[in-house]
């Protein structure tokens, strides 16, 4: 089997904040009835974290669960574990109305880190990024300039976000431009 690479093969930009391609990441989209005990058991078993509520992100290290919509979850895993985990979740949900898709190769994941990270994102998205409105444990799907993306915080200052893989170069250029030294606004 060919070696899996992320869209930008670990590209990195260092400015007021650091923008980095985080490499291949396992991602499984699960759609179905999120209150169904079978579904909850399957996804929490795969990710090893508690079930997230509305707009919550439960991420521990490489694993986690993101609440994407009232009937959609994203399961984050190490890249190699995704195919087997997707199969296992699909098996557990057999018989109920659901969709399980391994979308690892369809997405690009970026980390934006450093004290200026919040401002870098706030320049690009209409989402409210004030400290009182968005913090660790939350996930937000929104728009970055012209493309869709979802982001969450890994600690008090750092963000991770993903977008479609075909838009990875656009997203990287966008984040890099917003993170250039001297481009700070100083709002937060």
């Amino acid at each position: 089997m060919s070696e899996a690479v992320s869209a930008l093969a670990g590209a990195r930009f260092e400015g007021a904040a650091v923008v980095a391609d985080t490499g291949p990441r396992g991602m499984i989209t699960v759609r179905g009835d999120l209150s169904d005990a079978k579904l909850v058991k399957a996804v929490t078993g795969a990710a090893g974290v508690a079930m997230p509520g509305q707009r919550e992100a439960r991420v521990e290290g490489a694993k986690g669960l993101l609440w994407m919509s009232p009937d959609e979850l994203m399961v984050l895993l190490p890249y190699e574990e995704a195919p087997a985990a997707a199969e296992k979740i699909a098996k557990a949900l057999a018989g109920s109305h659901h969709l399980v898709a391994n979308v690892s190769d369809a997405r690009a994941v970026f980390a934006v880190t450093g004290a200026a990270a919040r401002e870098v994102l706030a320049k690009l998205t209409p989402a409210d990024l004030h400290v009182s409105a968005f913090g660790p444990g939350q996930v937000r799907r929104s728009r970055f300039a012209q493309v869709a993306a979802a982001f969450w915080m890994t600690n008090e200052t750092d963000f991770e976000l993903f977008c479609f893989r075909s838009q990875a170069v656009y997203m990287f250029d966008l984040l890099s431009a917003a993170a250039r030294k001297g481009a700070g606004v100083g709002y937060f």
């Binding site: 707009r55 009232p70 209409p126 989402a127 409210d128 799907r141 929104s142 728009r143």
Partner: peptide, 12 residues
């Protein structure tokens, strides 16, 4: 009303 977000027009 589904995700509880106050969404900007450009998100819609």
């Amino acid at each position: 009303p589904y995700c509880g977000v106050d969404a900007d027009e450009t998100e819609l």
